[in-house]
């Protein structure tokens, strides 16, 4: 079957700008992750837990404590065997929280505590979770979401992950990752979406709406779009032109 053309008319500059801005937003975030990835792939194939934690914390804490942080959480999830004596090791920090309904308030970045049994149950199968499994199997960066993060922030977020390896044919040491709120992306790109002549919507790979300037097509819902769109290069996102709501909404 021939591929649907990305856009059937001459691309509108405003729409191109939207797709480019979304691309630039995530590219900026992944640049930061790539710095962490390089710092963590320093040649050791095994590491002591305390040593790894100190290294990850030194990398992510400045980013999380920034006056206007891009990330609401960040860290490193180790592959089994990398951290000595541990099958599962999360070195994950949360940014300052104001009245987090699960974890309380804090004025500085705090370590995610996985000690309680419920979290242990959750992370037992972390290898099957999208944010870990996809970068592992594709050896590519991945954006999971948007989804409501019930584990840490209770916010509507994306999780960005990137595989960490020493060489090309070696096993993955783990993934570096960061959570970004949908709100943050919106604040950066919505003005560009509003500048277009037609209503637009940003959707993810399952056509879930992330940003919309068409009030009948709301954030969080699915679309059934068959019209024009522009893909965000290298990302599982598209900008839909005059998006259609699914009939049932």
């Amino acid at each position: 079957m021939p591929e649907m053309p990305e856009i059937s008319q001459l691309p509108d500059v405003a729409i191109t700008n939207c797709a480019a801005a979304v691309g630039a937003f995530f590219a900026g975030a992944f640049t930061e992750l790539d710095g962490w990835r390089q710092a963590l792939s320093n040649g050791d194939t095994e590491v002591r837990p305390a040593e790894l934690d100190a290294r990850v914390e030194a990398l992510v804490r400045p980013a999380l404590n920034d006056a206007s942080p891009l990330f609401v959480g960040a860290g490193f999830i180790a592959a089994p065997g990398y951290v000595r004596g541990r099958d599962i090791h999360f070195a994950w920090w949360l940014g300052p929280q104001a009245g987090n309904s699960l974890l309380g308030s804090s004025s500085t970045a705090t370590r995610l505590d996985l000690a309680t049994r419920a979290y242990t149950d959750y992370v037992r199968d972390f290898r099957t979770l999208e944010w870990y499994q996809v970068p592992q199997s594709t050896n590519q960066t991945h954006v999971t979401g948007p989804y409501v993060d019930h584990l840490c922030t209770c916010e509507y977020i994306f999780t960005l992950t990137m595989p960490v390896r020493i060489g090309t044919d070696t096993p993955m040491l783990g993934v570096v990752g960061a959570d970004v709120s949908v709100r943050r992306l919106e604040s950066m790109v919505l003005p560009l979406f509003l500048a277009a002549d037609q209503p637009l919507a940003l959707v993810n790979a399952v056509d879930r709406v992330v940003i919309s300037t068409e009030p009948t097509v709301q954030v969080g819902q699915l679309t059934a779009h068959s019209g024009n769109f522009m893909a965000c290069s290298g990302l599982p996102f598209r900008v839909l032109v005059s998006p259609d709501s699914l009939p049932r909404f």
Binding site: G99, N100, S101, L102, G104, T116, R117, A118, Y119, D121, Y122, R124, D125, T128, L129, E130, W131, T144, Y147, D149, H150, L151, T159
Partner: peptide, 17 residues
Amino acid sequence: MEAYNRPGAREAIFAQL
């Protein structure tokens, strides 16, 4: 983080007062 065994229901025991 799509799950399997989401912890929130039980973690809610410790949610803010």
